[in-house]
Computed example of a mutant assay.
Amino acid sequence: MACWLYEALLLFAIGLLATLVFSVAVNMRSGIDPRRWLLQAFLAVVFGIYFAVFWPRGQTLPMKTWRIAVRDRHGRPLTQGRAVLRYVYCSIWVLPPLAALASRRFTLWELGAIFFGWVAFWAVLSRLQPQGQFWHDIWAGTRLVDAQAQPRSS
Results as ranks from 00 to 15, higher is better:
residue 13 A to K: 01
residue 115 F to N: 09
residue 67 R to K: 06
residue 95 L to R: 11
residue 61 L to E: 06
residue 21 V to M: 13
residue 125 L to H: 13
residue 124 V to M: 15
residue 95 L to N: 13
residue 85 L to S: 05
residue 109 W to M: 10
residue 79 T to D: 11
residue 108 L to Q: 15
residue 55 W to H: 02
residue 49 I to L: 14
residue 16 L to Y: 09
residue 142 T to A: 01
residue 45 V to Q: 08
residue 76 R to P: 08
residue 140 A to Q: 03
residue 15 G to M: 14
residue 67 R to Y: 06
residue 149 A to C: 04
residue 112 G to P: 10
residue 119 V to Q: 15
residue 102 A to H: 13
residue 117 G to H: 12
residue 73 R to Q: 04
residue 107 T to K: 03
residue 94 V to A: 03
residue 65 T to R: 11
residue 76 R to D: 12
residue 50 Y to I: 00
residue 63 M to L: 06
residue 85 L to F: 14
residue 128 L to S: 12
residue 147 A to F: 03
residue 150 Q to W: 04
residue 9 L to K: 06
residue 131 Q to D: 09
residue 74 H to G: 05
residue 148 Q to R: 00
residue 110 E to D: 11
residue 33 D to N: 13
residue 120 A to T: 10
residue 29 R to A: 10
residue 75 G to W: 01
residue 59 Q to M: 00
residue 94 V to S: 09
residue 55 W to G: 12
residue 29 R to V: 15
residue 56 P to M: 04
residue 135 W to S: 06
residue 114 I to C: 09
residue 90 C to V: 08
residue 144 L to A: 13
residue 12 F to K: 01
residue 60 T to N: 00
residue 55 W to K: 02
residue 5 L to C: 02
residue 88 V to R: 03
residue 38 L to P: 13
residue 26 V to L: 15
residue 134 F to I: 02
residue 39 L to A: 01
residue 25 A to E: 07
residue 145 V to M: 08
residue 6 Y to K: 07
residue 65 T to P: 00
residue 63 M to R: 00
residue 105 R to F: 07
residue 8 A to D: 08
residue 61 L to N: 13
residue 11 L to Q: 12
residue 126 S to I: 07
residue 130 P to A: 08
residue 134 F to G: 05
residue 51 F to Q: 04
residue 9 L to H: 04
residue 32 I to A: 06
residue 23 S to L: 03
residue 100 A to N: 05
residue 68 I to K: 07
residue 117 G to E: 14
residue 83 A to Q: 00
residue 96 P to D: 13
residue 135 W to I: 09
residue 97 P to T: 12
residue 23 S to A: 15
residue 136 H to T: 10
residue 14 I to G: 09
residue 98 L to P: 09
residue 28 M to E: 01
residue 26 V to A: 11
residue 126 S to T: 10
residue 109 W to S: 15
residue 55 W to Q: 08
residue 56 P to H: 01
residue 38 L to K: 10
residue 11 L to W: 01
residue 73 R to T: 14
residue 140 A to R: 03
residue 40 Q to S: 15
residue 30 S to T: 06
residue 49 I to M: 12
residue 39 L to S: 10
residue 15 G to H: 04
residue 48 G to K: 06
residue 114 I to D: 14
residue 40 Q to Y: 07
residue 113 A to L: 11
residue 58 G to R: 02
residue 40 Q to F: 11
residue 27 N to A: 09
residue 106 F to V: 14
residue 43 L to N: 01
residue 66 W to E: 03
residue 119 V to S: 15
residue 55 W to F: 07
residue 87 Y to E: 05
residue 107 T to G: 13
residue 18 A to R: 00
residue 76 R to A: 06
residue 61 L to C: 07
